[in-house]
């Protein structure tokens, strides 16, 4: 956290008609850091992800990756600059094998021209990348499913597949949209270790998560959104102690007792 931030967001704003989905949002993210974005439903978390990745066009503000503007670029250009994401809903490529799914993440590293492809070049890159994709699938715990039909994967396995796919792009910044939702306890433990490992390798991780029990020991810092505005930012311990956050969000969770760690988080 001493180094200059890898990703800086300044004054990021998105209006849908009259509704302010994201309002003057600022945050920084450094290499190797895990930053969690929390907040009630409709607080603008997923919209923020869409804005950073170029899937949604911003109304105002700047997104800067290593000194270069990211805002205004189409999503594939954002990815080519090293920002990868997973989705809240299962977004696997259903008509493709598991390894091919992962290989799509590595797309930006296939450099050859189409004439080269037709002439029969590029087989070495293909073989090497395929091997790496298999290793990534093993890394996220899908090593026994390499031959499986994508449709037969469980919801949690689909989540892990998306992480492997994003990792194949060798991201500088990785955005995970509720990666823990719908995972079995053992998958959840594995996910925790995976994210720790990714951050330890120097990837900046931006994370949306509802399960405070899962999130608190994982995140270096937490940004809290409410109605599109940042209402708090700090270490997990500071956030847990912030009365406004407890009022807006954590308190509600405790009342609804939606997450396993809700009582723990609020108490």
């Amino acid at each position: 956290m001493i180094a200059a931030p890898l990703l800086s967001v300044r004054g990021l704003t998105k209006r849908f008609g009259g509704l302010l989905a994201v309002d003057e949002l600022d945050f920084d993210l450094s290499a190797g850091e895990v930053l969690a974005v929390i907040g009630p439903n409709g607080a603008g978390k997923s919209t923020t992800f869409g804005l950073v990745c170029g899937a949604i066009q911003r109304s105002a503000g700047e997104i800067i990756l290593k000194g270069a503007r990211l805002d205004g670029l189409p999503p594939h250009e954002v990815a080519r600059r090293g920002v990868f994401r997973t989705f809240q809903h299962n977004m696997a490529f259903k008509g493709m094998s598991l390894v091919d799914n992962v290989l799509i993440g590595a797309h930006r590293r296939f450099k050859g021209s189409l004439f080269g492809v037709v002439a029969g070049f590029g087989a070495d890159t293909e073989r090497a990348e395929r091997q790496r994709a298999i290793e990534l699938a093993r890394f996220v715990g899908l090593g026994d499913w390499l031959d499986a039909d994508i449709a037969t994967l469980s919801f949690g396995q689909g989540r892990l597949l998306e992480i492997a796919r994003a990792l194949a792009g060798e991201p500088k910044v990785l955005l995970l949209d509720e990666p823990g939702a719908g995972l079995t306890p053992s998958e959840s433990v594995r996910l925790f270790a995976i994210i720790k490992e990714i951050a330890a390798r120097g990837v900046a991780v931006l994370l949306i998560e509802h399960d405070m029990h899962f999130l608190m020991p994982l995140a270096d810092r937490v940004v809290v959104l409410n109605f599109g505005r940042k209402i708090a930012e700090g270490t997990p311990a500071e956030i847990r102690a912030d009365p406004e956050v407890v009022e807006a969000y954590l308190g509600n969770i405790a009342k609804d007792s939606t997450g396993a760690g809700a009582a723990h988080a609020a108490g």
Binding site: C53, A55, R80, F87, M91, K94, G95, M96, G105, R165
Partner: peptide, 14 residues
């Protein structure tokens, strides 16, 4: 194939 199956995800992968 990726675009055929899910264009949004394909674009997010570069």
């Amino acid at each position: 194939r990726a675009i055929r199956d899910n264009q949004t995800a394909a674009q997010a992968m570069g």
